[in-house]
């Protein structure tokens, strides 16, 4: 139930911000469509801890800036690889350990890997993520497990 309320709140905020109209008719239509969406989401059973991870909100504020900084750094590395005439890429396939317990944590970790250029997660098997890395250094950085620990701390006991 708390997840349904948070979903309703997000949907209605989205409606108001995207429409930019504040007259009663538009707001009433917004409430109506919010209720329909929430009803469908509850019926589909996607409005739960996994679909609406509101409990992660406080930790996001420390995780996202760190992830953004990693993305910017990785972008410069890949851009230099592309612009070097000899194309110094050595694609490798590696397996990295995902120490998160929940599926949500593993998905966050795999998505973070894909979002940083230079590493793409291909598959999750049990506790291991198969990763395609563009260069040897990108693979080694990931193997060191800094991001893994960071995500585990971020999702907490979940």
């Amino acid at each position: 139930m708390p997840h349904a309320i948070s979903l309703a709140f997000i949907c209605f905020a989205l409606w108001v911000l995207l429409s930019g109209h504040y007259d009663p008719l538009m707001l009433a239509l917004g409430v109506l469509s919010t209720l329909i969406v929430v009803a469908i989401a509850v019926r589909m059973e996607i409005s739960n801890r996994e679909g609406q991870p509101v409990h992660l909100l406080p930790m996001i504020l420390s995780y996202w800036p760190w992830l953004l900084w990693q993305i910017v750094k990785a972008n410069f590395v890949v851009a230099r690889c592309i612009l070097t005439p000899s194309l110094p890429v050595k694609p490798t396939l590696i397996k990295v350990k995902a120490s998160q317990k929940s599926r949500l944590g593993k998905v966050i970790y795999a998505n973070s890997i894909t979002l940083t250029p230079g590493t793409v997660s291909l598959d999750i098997k049990g506790n291991e993520i198969e990763v395609h890395a563009l260069t040897r250094t990108a693979a080694q950085d990931l193997k060191r497990g800094h991001m893994d620990r960071r995500v585990t701390k971020f999702v907490g006991s979940d």
């Binding site: 972008n75 890949v78 851009a79």
Partner: peptide, 13 residues
């Protein structure tokens, strides 16, 4: 598979 990384550059930064 290496082209994924190039697409990642345009999609993020």
């Amino acid at each position: 598979f290496s082209r994924f990384h190039a697409a990642g550059v345009t999609d993020t930064l």
